[in-house]
Measured scan of single mutants.
Amino acid sequence: GNIFIKNLHPDIDNKALYDTFSVFGDILSSKIATDENGKSKGFGFVHFEEEGAAKEAIDALNGMLLNGQEIYVAP
């Protein structure tokens, strides 16, 4: 299952995104959108192997604080 994450703190990188979401299941890919200079655009995507893991991550993390910013997590 794919999920979309927005309002990410600029310091959150691909590894931090992966580490945050990997507790919910096996991740096939995770990516933070960046500009041409490699600076985070504040949103990203995680693709879980299983749909159930994606739903669990959405339920658990939507509205949670990550590096002091409330993140939005949705399908």
Rank of each mutant, 00 (worst) to 15 (best):
N14L: 05
I12Y: 04
G44P: 00
E56N: 10
L8M: 11
F48S: 00
G52A: 14
S22I: 09
A16P: 03
P75F: 15
D35T: 14
F48N: 00
K6R: 09
F45R: 00
D13R: 05
L66P: 05
K31I: 06
Q69K: 14
F45G: 00
E51T: 11
N37G: 13
P10H: 13
H47I: 01
K6Q: 02
Y18E: 04
F4Y: 14
A53V: 14
D26V: 12
I12C: 05
L17C: 12
F21A: 09
Y72P: 00
I3F: 01
Y18P: 02
S40V: 09
F43S: 03
F4R: 01
L17Q: 04
G1C: 04
L66K: 06
F45W: 07
P75N: 14
I58Y: 08
K39Y: 08
V46A: 10
T34V: 14
D35E: 11
Q69P: 04
Q69S: 15
S40A: 11
I3L: 12
G52E: 12
K6E: 02
L8T: 04
D35Y: 13
A60Y: 07
L17F: 14
T34R: 08
G1V: 03
V23F: 07
F45V: 00
D11E: 09
G1E: 05
N7V: 04
V73G: 04
N67Q: 12
S29L: 01
G52Y: 09
N7L: 07
G68A: 13
E50Y: 11
N37P: 05
L28Y: 06
D59T: 10
H9M: 06
G68P: 03
I27R: 00
D35I: 10
A57S: 10
K31E: 01
H9S: 09
S22Y: 08
F24H: 04
D59N: 09
A57E: 02
G44K: 00
D19L: 08
E49D: 10
G44T: 00
F24P: 01
D35A: 14
I32H: 04
N67G: 11
G44S: 04
I58H: 11
A53G: 12
Q69Y: 13
N14Y: 04
N7G: 09
D26A: 12
L61I: 15
F21T: 07
I58P: 02
N7E: 05
S30D: 03
L8K: 01
S40T: 10
G42E: 09
G44E: 00
L17A: 07
K6D: 00
E50A: 13
A53C: 12
H9C: 12
P75R: 15
V46I: 08
N7F: 08
V23S: 07
A33I: 05
F48I: 04
N67C: 14
N2P: 00
F48D: 00
A57N: 01
L61R: 05
N2A: 01
H47D: 02
Y18K: 10
I5F: 04
G63D: 07
A74H: 12
G52S: 11
I27K: 00
T34L: 13
F24A: 02
A53Q: 08
K41Q: 06
E51A: 10
G42H: 14
N37H: 14
F21G: 08
Y18A: 10
N14E: 04
M64A: 07
I12R: 01
K39T: 11
K6V: 00
K55D: 10
G63P: 02
G63T: 09
E49I: 11
I71D: 02
N37F: 14
F45I: 00
K55L: 12
H9Q: 10
A54G: 12
G68Y: 06
K31H: 03
E51Y: 06
D35G: 14
L28T: 06
I5H: 01
G68N: 13
D19N: 12
S22H: 10
G52H: 12
S40Y: 07
L61W: 05
N62E: 12
F43L: 02
T34N: 10
G38A: 12
N37V: 13
I32G: 01
Y72L: 06
G42S: 14
A57I: 08
F43C: 03
I12V: 07
P10C: 13
N67R: 09
E50V: 14
L61C: 10
E49S: 10
K41H: 05
F48M: 05
S22L: 15
I32A: 05
D35P: 03
V23R: 05
N67I: 11
N37K: 14
I12L: 08
I71Y: 03
H47R: 02
E51F: 04
E70G: 12
T34P: 10
H47L: 03
I3T: 09
S22D: 08
F24Y: 05
T34G: 11
A60R: 05
G68E: 08
E50N: 12
V73I: 15
L17V: 09
I71L: 15
I32M: 13
L8A: 04
H9K: 08
I32K: 04
F43M: 06
G25I: 00
A54L: 06
V46C: 08
K55A: 09
Y72W: 04
F21P: 02
D19T: 15
D26K: 10
G52T: 09
F48G: 00
F24D: 00
K55S: 11
S40D: 03
G52W: 10
D26H: 11
P10L: 14
T20M: 09
H9N: 15
I3M: 08
A16Y: 05
A33R: 07
G42T: 09
S29A: 03
V73S: 05
L65I: 13
I27G: 02
L61S: 07
N62H: 13
T20G: 07
S40L: 08
A33E: 05
L66Q: 06
F4S: 01
T20D: 03
M64Q: 10
Y72V: 07
D59A: 11
L61F: 05
F48H: 02
A33T: 06
G68T: 08
G1R: 03
P10Y: 10
E56R: 06
T20S: 15
K31W: 04
A74V: 09
K15A: 06
V46F: 02
E56L: 11
A16V: 09
V46N: 01
Y72K: 07
K41I: 04
A16S: 15
F4H: 02
S30A: 08
F21S: 06
I5G: 01
I71T: 09
F43N: 01
P10I: 11
N14D: 09
G52L: 09
D59P: 06
N67A: 13
K41T: 02
M64L: 14
K31Y: 03
D35R: 10
S30C: 11
D13E: 07
S40W: 05
D13P: 09
L17S: 02
S22V: 09
G42R: 15
K39V: 08
L61P: 03
G52N: 12
E56V: 10
K39H: 07
A16D: 06
V73T: 08
K41G: 04
K55E: 13
I12N: 02
D59L: 15
I5N: 02
L65P: 12
G38W: 07
P75I: 14
N7P: 07
E49R: 09
E36A: 14
G25R: 00
S29W: 02
F43R: 03
N62M: 15
L17G: 00
L65T: 15
L65E: 13
V46Y: 00
G38K: 08
A16F: 05
F21M: 14
I58Q: 13
I27N: 00
G68C: 11
Y18F: 13
P75T: 13
P10D: 12
D35Q: 10
L61V: 14
G38P: 02
I27P: 02
V73A: 15
E70P: 10
M64W: 09
G25D: 02
L61G: 04
D19R: 09
S40F: 09
V46D: 00
G25W: 01
A53H: 15
D11N: 10
G68H: 15
F48W: 03
N37T: 12
D13F: 04
K6W: 02
L28P: 03
E51N: 11
D19E: 15
A54C: 06
K15M: 06
L17R: 00
K6S: 03
G44C: 06
D35F: 12
A74F: 03
E51I: 09
K55Q: 13
H9T: 10
D13N: 11
N14Q: 09
N2I: 01
F45L: 01
L61E: 04
P10T: 15
D13H: 10
H9R: 09
N67Y: 06
N62L: 12
G63N: 09
D13I: 05
F48C: 03
D19A: 12
S40H: 13
H9D: 15
D59C: 09
Y72T: 05
D13T: 06
D19G: 10
T20L: 05
N7A: 14
E51V: 12
N37Y: 10
I5Y: 01
G25E: 01
K15R: 14
Q69H: 15
G38S: 10
M64I: 11
N2L: 00
F24N: 02
G52F: 15
A53I: 15
I71N: 02
I71R: 01
